[in-house]
């Protein structure tokens, strides 16, 4: 028996109280710490929104200054692009034609090759081929664009010159072809994902009716995955439109309103590179043109991306 049980109990409860208050305060600090960490993580996620806002702010604010001096109508309809001359003309059509022609050539390569590769990998290829082909495509998309540019200018162009006599050293064709090779992995992997998302039961149903692999692939799987495949094409277009270095190196940088891929021409992106390589003072009209060009580019790719994602979402909801 302790000498005085009352004081003993009192002592115990004092200990308990201090333990409890200690626990409570620790829980409080723990809670505060948790909230603080959550806030930091949230800021990191929200930061990405500020990046977009920053892009929009920079492009729009510089373009507004630009469009105060050049009317939007002239910008869209003028057929000359000579922003650095005394007699300055700002017709974006000139750059746009280069962008569209080179993208067209690139898609003419990437769409058929990418689709066939996707169908082959998803429906035909044995496991061992897939295991080799997928990393190969990934490596292909990992090649720096400046290396592709070198390849277009110093390997593909001489090759094409042997086939097409009189082809100039800089041309949209070779840049577009190489760009197409560069885009194949994107088109192939997004289309293949769409095809693999088609449920197995649909294929089995088709086989049960006596269809062959080819018939199943072209008449069941491809139509079922069509919106996903379209999304892949659109993402490919957006890549092609935004591609810079291959065109800056292999297509020449002189503005040229043309629809002929065998001619040299500047694109929106290669014009920005050309201006940035020179020494334009901050705030001059020449400096602002690259932001107006950038805004045009941004709006184009944004439209394509939104369309692509809408289509991707639709195919995901289908099953």
């Amino acid at each position: 028996m302790p000498p005085s049980s009352a004081s003993y109990i009192e002592g115990l409860s004092a200990v308990a109280e201090s333990v409890i208050s200690d626990r409570l305060s620790r829980r409080k600090t723990r809670h505060l710490r948790e909230r603080f960490i959550e806030f930091i993580l949230f800021s990191a996620a929200a930061f990405s929104v500020f990046v977009t806002l920053g892009i929009v702010y920079v492009l729009v604010s510089e373009s507004v200054v630009f469009f105060r001096q050049v009317s939007v109508w002239d910008f869209l309809t003028d057929t000359q692009w000579t922003p650095l001359f005394d007699d300055a003309h700002y017709g974006i059509m000139v750059l746009l034609s280069g962008t569209l022609v080179s993208s067209g050539v690139a898609l003419a390569v990437a769409v058929p090759l990418g689709t066939i590769i996707a169908i082959y990998l998803s429906e035909f290829a044995p496991f061992s081929v897939r295991e080799v082909a997928k990393p190969l495509l990934e490596l292909l998309s990992g090649v720096p664009t400046v290396v592709y540019g070198y390849f277009a200018l110093l390997f593909v162009t001489p090759l094409l010159q042997a086939l097409i006599p009189g082809l100039p050293g800089f041309n949209l064709l070779s840049a577009g072809l190489v760009m197409g090779i560069m885009i194949i992995p994107y088109v192939a992997s997004v289309s293949e994902d769409a095809m693999r998302a088609v449920p197995m039961s649909m294929r089995e149903g088709s086989y049960a009716m006596g269809a062959t692999r080819f018939q199943t692939a072209t008449r069941v799987v491809t139509p079922a995955a069509l919106s996903g495949i379209t999304a892949a094409y659109i993402l490919g277009i957006s890549r092609a439109v935004g591609e810079t270095m291959i065109l800056a190196i292999a297509a020449g940088m002189q503005p040229n309103l043309t629809w002929n891929p065998t001619e040299p021409a500047a694109t929106i992106t290669s014009f920005i590179v050309q201006v940035a390589l020179g020494d334009l003072p901050h705030g001059s009209i020449g400096y602002q043109t690259i932001f107006a060009a950038g805004l045009t580019l941004m709006l184009m790719t944004l439209a394509f991306n939104v369309l692509g994602h809408v289509l991707t979402r639709r195919f995901r909801q289908a099953y």
Binding site: I55, V58, T244, I272, G294, M298
Partner: peptide, 11 residues
């Protein structure tokens, strides 16, 4: 992820 890299350069 879909913004062309050159636009980041302008930013």
């Amino acid at each position: 992820a879909g913004v062309p890299s050159i636009v980041y350069g302008l930013l």
